[in-house]
Simulated scan of single mutants.
Amino acid sequence: MSGTGEVVYLPRWRPGGSRVGAHRGRDAGGLGTFRDQVPFLRLPDARRIDIRATLRDPFEGTYVRRFETRTAIEVWALVDLSASMRFRGEADRMALVADLCTGLAASATRIGDSFGLIGCDDAVREDLFLPATRRQGIAVERVHRLATIRCEGTGARGLTDAPRRLAGRPKLVFVVSDFRWPETLIDQVFSGLALHDVVPVLLADAAEDEALPAFGLMEFDDLEGGGRRTVFMRPSLRRRWHARERERLDTLRSIASTYGRPPFRLEARFDAEALSRHLMTT
């Protein structure tokens, strides 16, 4: 497994809660970054009395300094484990997923956030489920198993059950897949995660599309049960193939942007810096 860098991310919402972390929270209290001054009766903490603001008040009110809390969040990876995810072209797809999740787990736990993992094919895979944890060793050990996991399911419908495991406060959720799903399933999965900050991670490989020859016999293997087919590739078929692929990606981008962020394309190798740029600018 290749080395992984640190992933920098910024949630789209102000998290609440009392668990101290690295993100700007929506609550205010006595510790953190200075936010504003409020009357003493709103925050009766004599340790935070602002002498200057109190002396300036013509009505002789007492003011205290209020600070912005720093709060922890939960980061989750929802991983498609259907048979198409065992595709190997320029890279081993599941090795890429393992590198991605290792980077997310290490980065989240390093700053006090929790990391959780849900793997799904036709159902949620209980053998891979990891409740959100702040213990880096446990999180990284579990995601290392992704590189050798058996992907044999005929679909990814189990991802529609994943939102039930994410009840409660909003979370940062990475949905990791090649997204070769029916449009209805894509919409179902993303609408079920609408409460959360959702980041689709699209697994792609040049061998699936860009490397197609203009002419020649090609053998295709449908990993999800469709069997093998031999096809004579020609320019007109290649153009139709590319058009269908663009249409599929446009549909994914449209649905994903409706419920969360646009997809991040993961291809050839995991680049933590590229993912960080995507997360900080979308």
Results as ranks from 00 to 15, higher is better:
235 P>D: 03
242 H>P: 01
248 R>Q: 08
225 G>N: 11
223 L>Y: 12
231 V>C: 07
248 R>D: 10
215 F>M: 15
230 T>S: 15
236 S>F: 03
223 L>Q: 11
226 G>D: 00
227 G>A: 11
244 R>S: 09
242 H>G: 10
228 R>P: 09
232 F>Y: 15
241 W>H: 02
231 V>R: 04
233 M>H: 00
221 D>L: 03
245 E>I: 11
248 R>G: 07
247 E>C: 07
231 V>N: 08
224 E>P: 03
234 R>G: 10
225 G>R: 06
248 R>A: 07
236 S>T: 08
212 L>Y: 09
229 R>Q: 08
226 G>K: 00
224 E>H: 04
220 F>H: 15
216 G>T: 14
219 E>T: 15
248 R>C: 03
217 L>M: 08
238 R>S: 01
242 H>Y: 09
220 F>E: 06
217 L>F: 06
236 S>D: 09
240 R>D: 12
233 M>P: 03
216 G>S: 14
214 A>I: 06
221 D>E: 14
237 L>K: 01
245 E>V: 09
227 G>R: 09
215 F>L: 14
244 R>G: 12
231 V>G: 07
245 E>A: 06
212 L>E: 02
237 L>Y: 00
219 E>R: 10
245 E>S: 05
231 V>P: 12
217 L>I: 07
234 R>F: 03
232 F>Q: 15
226 G>Q: 03
231 V>Q: 06
246 R>I: 13
222 D>P: 14
248 R>P: 04
236 S>A: 12
225 G>L: 07
222 D>A: 14
243 A>N: 06
215 F>S: 15
247 E>Q: 07
242 H>K: 06
234 R>D: 13
221 D>W: 03
228 R>A: 14
246 R>Q: 09
237 L>D: 00
214 A>E: 15
246 R>D: 13
238 R>T: 01
235 P>E: 01
241 W>I: 05
224 E>V: 05
240 R>K: 12
221 D>N: 09
213 P>V: 04
227 G>W: 02
234 R>Y: 07
240 R>H: 05
246 R>L: 04
216 G>R: 14
245 E>M: 12
229 R>E: 05
244 R>V: 06
213 P>S: 08
232 F>T: 12
223 L>D: 15
220 F>I: 11
244 R>H: 00
215 F>I: 13
218 M>K: 10
247 E>L: 03
219 E>N: 15
212 L>K: 05
221 D>F: 02
241 W>Y: 12
212 L>H: 05
218 M>V: 09
243 A>H: 06
246 R>K: 05
230 T>V: 14
241 W>N: 00
247 E>S: 11
227 G>H: 05
212 L>D: 04
233 M>C: 05
242 H>M: 11
230 T>P: 13
217 L>D: 14
214 A>G: 15
225 G>K: 02
228 R>F: 13
218 M>R: 08
229 R>P: 10
239 R>Q: 02
212 L>I: 06
246 R>F: 01
246 R>N: 02
228 R>S: 15
248 R>W: 02
226 G>F: 00
224 E>M: 05
237 L>Q: 00
212 L>W: 10
246 R>G: 00
236 S>P: 04
230 T>R: 14
229 R>T: 05
228 R>W: 08
244 R>I: 02
234 R>V: 07
213 P>F: 11
229 R>D: 04
243 A>S: 10
237 L>H: 00
